[in-house]
Amino acid sequence: MTQNEIAISVKGLKKSYKNVRVLTGVDFEVRTGSIFALLGSNGAGKTTIVKVLATLLKQDSGDVTVNGFDVLSKPENVRQSISLTGQSAAVDEVLTGRENLIMIARLWHLKHPPQVADDLLKRFGLTDAADRRASTYSGGMRRRLDIAMSLVGRSPLIFLDEPTTGLDPEARIEVWKIIKELAGSGTTVFLTTQYLEEVEQLADRIAILHKGEIIVSGTLAELKKLFPPAQVEYIEKQPTLEEIFLAIIGKKKEK
């Protein structure tokens, strides 16, 4: 891989909070234009990694470069080339959806903030709710606005820290669609999640973080090879509750 093809490179990343060692030596690389999923249980250190990559937190040791820039010596360049969607949907609830987007567009010093806002509202199906305060939005709408705000700067790399946590199944599928479209248009997506299904649906490459270390990484196919081959069992395939739920909702909508 040449330098241009690597969006994120992390070598020997360590971070402790007081006496708690959160990251004990993390290594991984993310290829430009791919969807990279960091999988781990709560408290595994996923958010800490995202914060280091997004220059919100300084590592204790290790080399971390994002889009070719060192996070410690060139944080300004890193921020210029990334967007962060944090764990809590960081939208301003007092402002309307449109005002939120215009605010971010002005902070990116774009030419026509209202136009940028209009385009994103349309793309994320928020046009009807554009002039309502974000506090009136549902969880899914809020998350869509949150992601839209992250796309304002047209960053080549976007971090999504547990983007679907707390969303209902429909909203989750919408977010998945957005992520797929993003990657389709060449944006590198760094995703953290605790949902295995999300990883199967989206990720090109997967890394599993456990107790401060990456214990395995690779493509889904590679990961599957690491484990004993699937046993063939004959069982009646019952629909999952999620499938039932979505089927009913889908029918309702068609009516």
Partner: peptide, 13 residues
């Protein structure tokens, strides 16, 4: 609390 500062701090401002 809502992560708004984090959003601003990850931006080039």
């Amino acid at each position: 609390q809502r992560g708004i500062f984090e959003r601003f701090h990850s931006m080039p401002i």
